[in-house]
Design a protein around this nucleic acid. Sequence first.
RNA 1: GCCGAUGUAGUUUAGUGGUAAAACAGAUGCAUGGUAAGCAUCAGAUGACAGUUCAAUUCUGUCCUUCGGCACCA
Length: 584
Amino acid sequence: MINIKESNELSPLNHSCAHLLAQAVKNLYPKAFFWVGPVIEEGFYYDVYLGDDSITEEDLIKIEKEMKKIAKDNKKIIKLELNKEDALIMFKEDPYKIDLINNLENPEIITAYKQDNFIDLCKGPHVEFTKEIKYFKLLKVSGAYFKGDSKNKMLQRIYGVCFKTEEALNEHLKFLEEAKKRDHRKIGKELDLFCFSDLVGPGLPLFTPKGTTIKDELQRAVEEICRKYGFEKVSTPHLANIKLYEISGHASKFSEELFHATSQKGHELVMKPVQCPHQTQIFASKIRSYRDLPIRYMESEKQYRAEMPGAVSGLSRVYAITCEDGHSFCTVDQVKQEVINMVNIIKDFYSSLGLWGNHWVSLSLRDYSSPEKYIGDPKDWDLCEKMLEEVSNELGLEAKRCEGEAALYGPKLDFIFKDAMGREIQIPTVQLDFATAKRFDLTYVTKENTKEHPVMVHRAILGSYERFLVLLIEHFAGAFPLWLSPVQVNIIPVNNDYHLVYCIDLKNLLLDNNIRVALDDRNEKLGYKMRESQTQKIPYTIIVGDREKDNNIISYRKYGNEDTVSVDTDKFIDTLITAIKNKQ
RNA sequence: GCCGAUGUAGUUUAGUGGUAAAACAGAUGCAUGGUAAGCAUCAGAUGACAGUUCAAUUCUGUCCUUCGGCACCA
C-alpha cells in the first residue's frame, strides 16, 4: 500500500525532484514516456515507460548525475495554466498525458510546470528554481502496473528522496541502513528464532525452540486477556470438506488460494484457509438459547493459503499461517459491546508491548461500485457499517474510511502498524458479519421461542503469529522484554571446575521458579561468554564465582548495561518472577 | 502472477575461463579465576539442469531460491 502524502513542507521539493528525474530520464532515453510522479510518504516516485529499453539499478547513478547537471543550470520553474484544448495540443505527442488530461476531475483548470525545455502536467506546488533540488538520492527501480491494474502492461517505477540539507539526506540514508539491521529475517537468523528449508519449501517457516518459546508466550498472554472477556478456547482440524467453504463463500472467492488435499482412498479435502467456518460448526452442534449468547470462541491453529509466489516474504507473507482468531456469536443488541470489548483487548495487548500509537485505524468498507464482490444482504451491510463507524467514533479511534477494503462478509476495523522499514503491516482486526450465520443457518432460540440468526463478530488480536513476530522482532530489534525472552537468564561460572556444581544447583533453582535459564559451561574465557550473552541479547547474565557462592548472592549484568549489580539470591528470583508476571 | 535484481561452507564476505580465499560459528587438543572475541590443528562451499568450451563457480539459457517493488491479501 502506497501512502500518497497530502502535503508537507518537503512535498514541493520532492515533487520538483520527480520532475527533474523525468527530465533527466528524457534526456538519456529520448523515447521515454511518463505516467505519474507523485510525492509519497518517503520521497517520491515516477512511473516511466521505455518501450524495449529498461533501467537497472546501475543506471540510477547515471540518471542522478544527469539530474545534478540539469539542476546546476538553475532554471526557474514556471507554472503554466492551460485549458483542456491547449493542454491536449501541448501534449499531443504523449499518449499518457492525453489519457491523464481526458480523465482529469477538473478539466477546466489544468496546470503544468515548465523548467528549461521540459514541461510536465502537474498540480504543483513546486520550488522556484532547479538549484534548490540539491540533496537527493534515487533509491530503487521496480515494476508497476499501468494504472495499478495487473491486466495492463508494466511501467518502470523509480523511487527517490529529496531533502533541503545534506545532513537531512544523510540522516535519512542512515535511518534506512539502521532499519536493515532490524530486519526480522536478519535478527531471526542471528538469534536463531526461525528458519526455512528448501526441502520443506518456501513460505513454510520452521520455528526453532527459541522462536517457539516466544510464540507460546504470546499465545498464553493473548489467551489470558481474552479469557477475561469471556472467550473459550477451541481446537479445530486443519482439513475440511470443501463444502464448508462453498457455503461460507470462500471457495468461490478464493478458489485459487486453496490448497487441496486428496488421498487414494477418495478423500477430497481442502486445507483450511480461515478458522471461522469450522467454528460455526461448533456453534451449530447443539441448540443454542439467547441466554447463552454471546458465545465466544478463540483458537490458535495453522491455516494455509496458496499466496502468489511473488508475495511470499520472510515471515510477513507465508503459506502456512499460525492464526490467532476468535469469534463472538451474539445478538444484534450485543454487537456494539462486543466490538468495544475487542478493541479494548487490542488496545490493552498492544499497549503492554509499547506498540500502541505506532498505528492508524482503517474503517474498511464495501466497494460500493462492485457489490458482486461481497456476500450478504445490502441492508445488513448498511447496518454493520453504521454500527462500526459509531463505535469507532465513540472509542475515538480516528479511523480513516477506506472503501473497498471490507472483508467478503462484512466491514471491519483494521489496525495498521509499521515495520522497521516503514512498510505498513496490518495485524489486529475486528469484523462484523451478518452473512455467515445465515449461510450456515446458525440459529438461537429467542425469548419468544422463535429462531434467530446470531451475528458473528470476528476478531484477531495477534492475527498471524508470523506477521506479529515481524512487528515484534523489529520493534525490539531482538531485545525482547524479559517475559518474552527465549533465554531469560544466562549463568556464566568464573571457573568451570570450582563453580560448576553450585551453578547447576542455581540453574535448577531458577528452573523450579519457571525462569528460562541457560548455563554456559563451555571451556571458554569469561569475556568470550559475556560477549555472546550480550550479542544474543539475553536480559540477565549472571556471573558466579567465590563471592557469589560464599555469600549466596547473585551478581548480574542486564542486557545493554555495562555495570554489574549484586543482590541476595532470593530477592533476585522474586524480582524476576514479579517482572515476568507483570509482562515486563 | 508481473518487472528488476540475486545465489560461493552453518553465517558474513573475497575471488577467478585452468588447484576457490578468509573471518566468525563447529570438532579436537592446549590454555583459561571476574564482565564483549586466548592459541593451534582439523573438517566444511560455488542453487539445479542444460549449452558454449580442451577446460565453466565464472559466459549463455531454463528452472528454483532469495531480495526490492507491482498486483493480490478472507
